[in-house]
């Protein structure tokens, strides 16, 4: 627990996801072509990591990343996460990591956070930071579920946050309102793209990232029946890309004015210009 003015023990939950912008449907099946997928750090988790770094810059402390992974992510992504400011990265392999079952993910993540805090880092977390959601499933459940599993207060959709002594003050963006809240640490905070703009890491941080510890836990080692407790609740029956019904007509012409006139005529005949 944080003493007044003391350093923060921060855990950031990180998901290594499919890069959805580079994911294409398999032409034969319309299912996502995961065999050719590229991977990335979930964008909102980059915001979470950036926010952790900013808090560390102000208050001091240590930041560790925790990630549930189906298989070992590309090493360059691990290096990037470390270069962005993690002091250590813990990987928890689990076959269901990519299933999108938030109950399984959150239960194992929470057990891993407890284990890492108690056994490896010997701290109790002041802050657990998560992205609001992940770009692949866009589910938004893992943060609040982990908080529930750890028994700490969740502060979701935070767009600004700061810590004063043992109190966290955060601005949450809830639909049309800004909800300013405070809570006593520890807390779990979820953040998104409005929260900050993650900076690019320094070249030397990238080249030296491999010297920072990457610890691979096993779910079996998490104990207290974490695996048994994390039985699947959801079954993914199928994923397909619906066909697009757009006309995809290119409007060309002799210079901008001609193009504009043709487009206006077309929209008028479609009845889209009601004037």
């Amino acid at each position: 627990m944080t003493e007044a003015g003391s350093e923060l023990a921060i855990a950031v939950c990180i998901k290594f996801t499919v890069d959805v912008n580079r994911l294409r449907p398999d032409p034969a099946t319309a299912a996502p072509d995961l065999g050719h997928a590229h991977y990335r750090i979930n964008d909102f988790d980059e915001n979470a990591l950036e926010e952790a770094v900013r808090l560390k810059e102000r208050h001091g402390g240590r930041i560790v990343g925790v990630s549930l992974v189906e298989r070992e992510p590309p090493r360059e992504l691990l290096l990037r996460a470390l270069a962005a400011g993690l002091d250590a990265l813990y990987l928890v392999p689990h076959a269901a990591a990519a299933s999108g079952d938030a109950f399984v993910t959150a239960t194992i993540l929470a057990a891993a956070l407890e284990e890492i805090g108690a056994v490896y880092e010997m701290v109790s977390w002041d802050l657990v930071l998560c992205g609001d959601a992940s770009c692949d499933t866009y589910d938004g459940q893992v943060g609040p579920r982990v908080a529930e599993a750890l028994g700490i207060v969740p502060i979701t959709y935070a767009t600004r946050l700061d810590v004063r002594d043992d109190t966290i003050v955060a601005e949450r963006t809830i639909e049309d309102y800004v909800h300013v809240v405070e809570a006593t640490l520890p807390a779990l905070v979820t953040v998104g793209s409005e929260t900050n703009k993650p900076r690019l890491p320094h070249l030397r941080q990238i080249m030296d990232a491999g010297r920072k510890p990457i610890v691979r836990l096993t779910t079996a080692g998490l104990g207290r029946g974490a695996l048994d407790r994390a039985r699947a609740t959801l079954e993914l029956l199928g994923v397909t890309a619906p066909p697009s019904a757009r006309r995809r007509m290119v409007v060309g012409g002799n210079g901008p004015d001609d193009v504009a006139r043709k487009l206006v005529r077309q929209l008028q005949s479609d009845g889209e210009l009601t004037q």
Partner: peptide, 22 residues
């Protein structure tokens, strides 16, 4: 008897069918 939902996935270009048996 499972609750089966359709939802967007992978940024919305795919639709997933998910059975919730809880």
């Amino acid at each position: 008897g499972a609750l089966v939902a359709t939802r967007r996935m992978y940024g919305g270009q795919f639709l997933a069918r998910v059975a919730n048996r809880s």
